[in-house]
Design a protein around this nucleic acid. Structure first.
Length: 802
DNA sequence: CAGTGAGCGAGCTTCCGCTTGACTT
């Protein structure tokens, strides 16, 4: 119908652009890539110079058909995908797959979605940049080769269904190495000295002043000597220095910085941030949320300025354009910013509101004036001592951008911000109220959280805005890494206090090392990592991506052919894969802890078929070895001999009941009692090592009592419908499928057979939980796949719908 | 839903980057 067909990647973008272009233009979306390497097999023809085998993805068949139809009616087709490597490839795949003709196809690009930018793009079309496309093909083929050749090595040498890849394997490596740094970390103690003084200010008014000694002491003895020397010392103001300083606002958000700030300020996971941002984008409230650029459009700069003037006044304005520092950034989009700077908030869920306000503040602040501060330091002389106490304070002279926004940091330690200091004069005498030398410890390196891992990956140039969240999900779904908490440990520290001429020496207790929602490597993660780093150090190298990116740049510049670059890589890589398959051992991560004192046999830990285990004896001995599973919190790497021996104390017998023995053990779902073929969970308050015969009987009888109350009634000729009490309230079951009872508040006793049949008819999808879809969008597929082992013949993918 | 640590073994699993969709306890 329309004379012109414009194809962009995102449907939301298509909608906006259509408004700018008017009736002669129809704008459609490709929904990202339309085709990819064949999923079956490796999809690369090695005998034919690495010829890729491209297939239209099953979920894109419909899109492609619709696009094809639309091109038939169009006089000119405008390929308007993003101006980066992937975008260029999308344009080329469209050109190929839609069988477009050169004479009526135009390639256009724009970096911001404004009318001017788009009209300008239409006036300056170009051809598809085939070198840039080739760089993308090289990237794609390399990733496929690495992923599809390494993963099978893991299946053979470690465990089936595992995976490895250029991005995910390095992400896991970062976490494994950080964990080891933490395990090997030895805290360094030193003594920090602080004092509280009495004095008078310039007006003679009594004041108190807190100050800290310029130097820390390495030992208690040195701290003691210092305090002794203070007993009879005189204190006086030696010097007062006032220095103006400045703070500048942070640049507007990219995907990675948005994920970090949303994690710190709002407690969002990276997946959650992306979901909420997607909704804001679709409702037209913010610009595109997958970007590596800190650029703002001229329009955004102008409207920000107007907004700041009306809000705070002209002197708060400082229009800035930031430069992207990120390695390998492609900058196809703007920074993440509000679509309309005058909208301080939006309609929507509370999550959407909070994330939007964060984006609004960050964007506005980036266009505001620097904050001006005044930093004052009062240096205090100690008679007979060359050390000095320093009292420092900071005053905001002009708030500037701080009026709306301050970026957070990962370590909360600098939270103690000093404020205004009293005005004093040089030479003024001070009297010490108390001087305290407190033992302080150096901090362990922090574990990565999801967002800080993303920041590290970005710093290394690994991964892209569209893959940060999925990568974090993948390494958790493969069980290489787990998100978890660590409770604080108690630690003693020494406090020496000089007060009223006397020194006291006390031990105090503090909590340390508490962590929430951090990433911990699992045993399998460590074994896989160690194996890969040993046999494939090149791929696991933190610079691998940066190195191949240089190659891709050469391809994009037309300096080398992509197939030659891939050939160079493959000729080196493939033989190592073959060699490793043939010559490496099965990887179990075995660690020998020592000798079991009771049997004298070897005590070791390793990865078994069902997870990490401890073992007494070896397979070679005549007597069979004893086995015990490690607890959830324990790891092969860090378990001690004592802890391992403790594991063999279960299962234990807790006496007899009704002629059968009761056995106490710990299973996958926690501690339980087994009796006469049935299982009874142990409440959290009971220690499995301590449970007595009487207590065990009590637990069994309690469970039987609730079982009895479980069945409310049975209906139907053969009792095929059972109304039951469940964890979430009453429900009923029919042919092993559970059904809800509604309306809410229905008394389950009143249910009739007819009513149940009505309810069954009203819930046709009640059995749908067996389908391979979970709660999380991208995580779900892989998550259910691993569980699919339990159920034979579950086909998660609907292939070949043709 | 909970014992295992291996046997003869079918056939399966997997990558990274673009984009959105419509699954419930």
């Amino acid at each position: 119908m329309s004379k012109n067909l414009v194809i962009v990647e995102s449907p939301a973008k298509a909608k906006t652009i259509e408004k700018f272009l008017g009736k002669d233009y129809q704008v459609m979306s490709s929904f990202g890539h339309i085709r990819d390497l064949a999923e079956k097999g490796i999809g690369i023809d090695f005998d034919n110079n690495y010829q890729p085998e491209y297939v239209v993805s099953t979920d894109k068949k419909k899109t492609v058909a619709e696009l094809k139809k639309a091109t038939k009616d169009a006089e000119i087709v405008w390929l308007a995908s993003d101006e980066d490597r992937e975008g260029e490839a999308i344009a080329w795949h469209l050109y190929e797959e839609l069988k477009l003709k050169k004479e009526n196809t135009r390639r256009i690009v724009f970096h911001e979605i404004t009318k001017d930018a788009i009209l300008n793009a239409i006036e300056h079309p170009r051809d598809i940049d085939i070198h840039l496309v080739d760089a993308q093909q090289a990237r794609r083929v390399l990733d496929r080769i690495v992923g599809f050749e390494l993963s099978p090595v893991l299946w053979r040498k470690v465990r089936p269904s595992l995976s490895a890849g250029r991005v995910q394997s390095v992400a896991v490596r970062l976490i494994v190495e950080r964990e080891r740094e933490i395990n090997q970390f030895l805290a360094d103690a030193s003594y920090k000295v602080s004092a509280l003084f009495n004095s008078v200010d310039v007006n003679g008014k009594a004041i108190e002043l807190k100050a800290e000694l310029s130097q820390r002491f390495a030992t208690k003895a040195e701290a003691m000597v210092f305090l002794e020397s203070c007993k009879n010392a005189q204190f006086s103001v030696d010097n007062i220095i006032t220095k103006p300083t400045k703070k500048s606002p942070a640049p507007p958000f990219t995907t990675s910085t948005l994920q970090q700030e949303a994690a710190r300020k709002l407690g969002f996971s990276v997946a959650q941030t992306m979901q909420v941002a997607q909704r804001l984008y679709e409702s037209g409230n913010i610009t595109y949320m997958r970007t590596d650029s800190v650029n703002l459009s001229g329009l955004a700069l102008g409207t920000s300025k107007a907004e700041i003037i009306s809000m705070a006044g002209e002197k708060y304005v400082h229009t800035r354009q930031f430069n992207t520092k990120t390695k390998g950034a492609q900058e196809a989009h703007e920074a993440i910013r509000p679509s309309y700077m005058n909208a301080h908030t939006v309609e929507g869920s509370s999550q959407e509101k909070r994330l939007y306000e964060l984006i609004w503040k960050r964007t506005i602040a980036s266009q505001m004036a620097d904050a001006e501060l005044e930093k004052t330091s009062i240096y205090i002389r100690i008679s007979g001592n060359k050390q000095q106490f320093i009292a420092s304070g900071e005053v905001i002279v002009f708030d500037g951008f701080l009026k709306v926004y301050m970026e957070s940091t990962d370590d909360e330690t600098d939270a103690e911000n000093e404020s205004l200091l009293p005005a004093m004069k040089n030479g003024e005498k001070l009297f010490s109220e108390e001087i305290v030398a407190q033992e302080r410890f150096s901090q362990k390196p922090p574990r990565y959280g999801e967002a800080s891992l993303v920041r590290k990956l970005e710093e290394l140039g690994i991964g892209r805005p569209s893959t940060y969240a999925p990568t974090i999900s993948t390494i958790q779904n493969r069980s290489y890494v787990e998100k978890g908490d660590r409770t604080a440990e108690k630690r003693n520290y020494n406090v020496l206090k000089l007060k009223a001429g006397k020194i006291t020496d006390k031990i105090k207790e503090e909590n340390t090392g508490a962590e929430k929602s951090k990433l911990f490597p699992t045993d399998i993660g460590m074994v896989v990592n160690d194996f890969l780093t040993e046999y494939f150090p090149t791929i696991l190298n933190y610079n691998f991506t940066a190195d191949v990116e240089k190659e891709f740049d050469l391809i994009a510049d037309g300096e080398i052919k992509w197939t030659i670059a891939i050939d160079k890589f493959y000729k080196k890589f493939h033989p190592i894969v073959e060699d490793t398959m043939k010559n490496s051992e099965r990887q179990v991560g075995e660690r020998i802890l020592g000798t079991d004192p009771t049997s004298g046999r070897q005590l070791s830990v390793k990865l078994g078929k069902y997870g990490p285990l401890a073992q007494i004896g070896t397979a070679e001995e005549e007597e069979k070895p004893l086995f015990a599973s490690l607890r959830k919190e324990q790891s092969i790497e860090s378990i001690s001999m004592e802890e391992a021996l403790e594991l063999f104390k279960l299962p234990r017998q807790a006496g007899e009941f009704e002629g059968s023995i009761m056995t106490v053990a710990i299973g996958r779902f926690g501690p339980y009692i087994r009796h006469d073929g049935a299982f009874y969970s142990l409440p959290k308050t009971d220690d499995p090592m301590e449970v007595s015969t009487e207590r065990a009987i009590e637990i069994i009888e309690e469970k039987r009592e609730t079982e009895k109350n479980r069945i409310i009634k049975t209906l139907g000729e053969n009792g095929e419908i059972q109304v039951l009490n469940g964890r979430f309230g009453p429900y009923f079951t029919c042919n092993k499928i559970n059904y809800k009872i509604f309306p809410k508040g229905t008394d389950p006793v009143t249910l009739t057979l007819e009513r149940c049949q009505e309810l069954i008819a009203a819930q046709p999808d009640a059995g749908a939980k067996k389908k391979p879809f979970g709660r999380k969008a991208t995580a779900a597929k892989t998550e259910t796949k691993s569980k699919a082992k339990a159920k034979p013949k579950t086909k998660p993918k609907a292939k070949k719908s043709k």
